[in-house]
Design a protein around this nucleic acid. Structure first.
Lengths: 132, 132
DNA sequence: AAGTAGTTTAGAATGATTTTAAAGTAAATA
DNA sequence: TATTTACTTTAAAATCATTCTAAACTACTT
């Protein structure tokens, strides 16, 4: 599917900037990146985009489910193009994330959900340390 | 154990400010709080502390294992006086955390650890949504 | 073709956290 | 005990990621 369609299907107006970003991000590969990482990639691809626009686009993309946002990695916001339910390995030293397929983790037991709430997804983080 | 001893045992110099913080935090109760929350509590207790000192102390306390830091809750740093290995319920709306005892979660299967790394702890986050 | 509603932009503003450098204090040494 | 040394606290400035603002722009509708 072309970026134009993906953006239209998501209910967003296809601007030049959103197309540039969709071309970079939505290529089927799973990536983890910050707003600044993306701005650098945009530059490398011969385009220019203000950092405000990068943030705006990422926010819109997130709101309509084209990407996800990961909260536990670094202080800076990290985005994730893998929108399937999945887990992560996390190298706490560097903040690097590696995807874990949902079916690789099996939970035998989880506690009762507190009153007034419902379970809205379980996320497993396996923290890693370099072994040398 | 008195705060003075706790601080000494942790290898820190017991300053007036660290004692004030230890008196508030290390009372055996498990809390989640930000630097600003703590500064407010310090004020309520009739003391004053610059926000820089609050951050310095929390950093030192974290480094020597007197407290933990939780990364996935809010944009602001959240600290945790529960230093045991445990998991969390997370209300994504409010950022509120509730502890889950380690033994309440049983993992039947976890994936192979990537080459060059060792498993440095598994953390489970059960995201919550208000049910109304 | 004209209108309007949403978007981009530079730059300012914000908010959390860190840094700076001077003054203060606990611990070590004489 | 007095002196020295290293660490700590502080206010204020600096930093950094992110959001806001308001003007210019552009996609879509009429």
């Amino acid at each position: 599917m072309k970026s134009l369609e993906k953006i239209r299907n998501a209910g967003l107006r296809p601007t030049k900037q959103r197309l540039v970003i969709a071309d970079i991000l939505l290529d089927g590969q799973n990536r983890h990146f910050t707003a600044e990482d993306l701005q650098d990639e945009i530059s490398s691809s011969g385009n220019y985009m203000s950092i405000g626009t990068v943030y705006n686009c990422l926010k819109k993309f997130r709101e309509c489910g084209l990407i996800k946002q990961v909260k536990y990695s670094k202080d800076t916001a990290v985005f994730d193009t893998n929108t399937n339910h999945h887990h992560h390995f996390l190298d706490e030293e560097t903040g690097q994330l590696i995807d874990i397929d949902n079916n690789k983790v099996i939970l035998k037991n989880i506690p009762e959900i507190p009153n007034g709430f419902i379970n809205n997804g379980v996320e497993v983080i396996i923290k890693l340390k370099r072994n040398n």
